[in-house]
């Protein structure tokens, strides 16, 4: 170590390393690493972090008379988000938030329930046809979300074969439409998010170590117990990705509930969209957005906590 040049005391000591045949020091390599990361860091800074900070700033501003932003510090937007309005407290905003949580949670759970058998089905196909099945899962993405929503409107309209089949089974009144309804929202949400669950889940299922499943059976496990100990811990990484990819965007979703729910129920996504759109109330919209972000993070936190529990129990 005495041969090494002394490094300034404020930086970590630099060690000699060989990097792809080149003799260099760890410090130099670290600096080069930053250089490579710089474009990405700049991009994130410009287009994510700065706008994010702007949203935070705007959420504490006032709305001007003509929908402009008055830079007077106020907490009124958050107070409104909590339900306090000109006419006193109302539960409307909180209900919208609760409905968003409920819709996103339900979408996530149902998607997972549907995706599990699908992922196992695809993983059990011969290797060549697996990619065909995976492509079929992705195909709906080749069309725009709004167009897909309109397609569902047609499919669920009173004259469609699906609706007729449903009414002949007595599920709906004759001549009634399946849309707008909660059912139509569920159909739209599931068809939108299913691929986000199937793909990560499939990648976990494909690598499943079946001997653990067999070990659970060999040790007298049945049904749920085999699943909980033989399968779930192994697919948990894929499941976590699936939950994040579904739950987070579903929390802010407004197109599907709007089009297929007939605008009957206000979700927080709709509310935010209104503020930035027709209402021209950016400060309130920003506050609502941040509340949504916060709620989503809390939701994910609890998921991770529960997920860790499954990992360690």
């Amino acid at each position: 170590m005495t041969a090494l040049k002394k490094t300034p005391s404020n930086t970590a000591p630099s060690r000699f390393v060989v990097w792809y045949g080149e003799l260099t020091t760890s410090g130099k390599l670290g600096r080069r690493g930053w250089l490579f990361a710089l474009p990405g860091v700049l991009w994130l800074l410009l287009f994510l972090i700065l706008p994010g900070l702007a949203v935070v700033a705007v959420s504490f501003a006032e709305r001007g008379q003509y929908g402009d932003i008055q830079w007077n510090f106020t907490l009124e937007n958050y107070s409104r988000a909590a339900g306090n309005g000109i006419f006193g407290w109302s539960a409307d905003t909180l209900l919208a938030l609760a409905r968003s949580l409920w819709t996103a949670g339900l979408t996530t759970v149902l998607s997972i329930l549907l995706a599990f058998p699908l992922a196992f089905f695809i993983a059990s196909r011969p290797e060549k046809s697996r990619y065909l099945w995976l492509t079929l899962v992705i195909v709906p993405f080749w069309t725009n979300l709004v167009i897909r929503a309109y397609a569902w409107m047609l499919l669920l309209s009173p004259e469609s074969p699906i609706t007729r089949a449903a009414s002949s089974l007595g599920l709906v009144e004759a001549g009634a439409a399946l849309y707008p309804s909660d059912f139509a929202i569920a159909v739209g949400m599931l068809s939108t998010f299913l691929p986000f669950v199937v793909l990560p889940l499939y990648s976990s299922v494909e690598r499943l170590d079946w001997s653990q499943v067999e070990a659970a059976q060999d040790l007298y496990g049945r049904g749920i117990r085999v699943f909980m100990h033989g399968i779930l811990p192994q697919v948990l990484p894929g499941l976590t990705v699936a939950v994040i990819l579904t739950f987070v965007p579903a929390m802010g979703m407004f197109v599907i509930p709007d089009l297929l729910g007939g605008g009957k129920f206000l979700l927080v996504g709709n509310l935010i969209q209104q503020q930035f759109g027709s209402s021209r109330d950016w400060p309130y919209g920003a506050a609502l957005s941040l509340v949504l972000v916060l709620l989503t993070l809390v939701g994910l936190h609890y998921y991770r906590k529960y997920g860790k529990g499954v990992e360690l129990v």
Partner: peptide, 10 residues
């Protein structure tokens, strides 16, 4: 089992 197939979470 050949690979032992122990439960990693237990």
């Amino acid at each position: 089992f050949q690979s032992y197939a122990l439960f990693p979470h237990l």
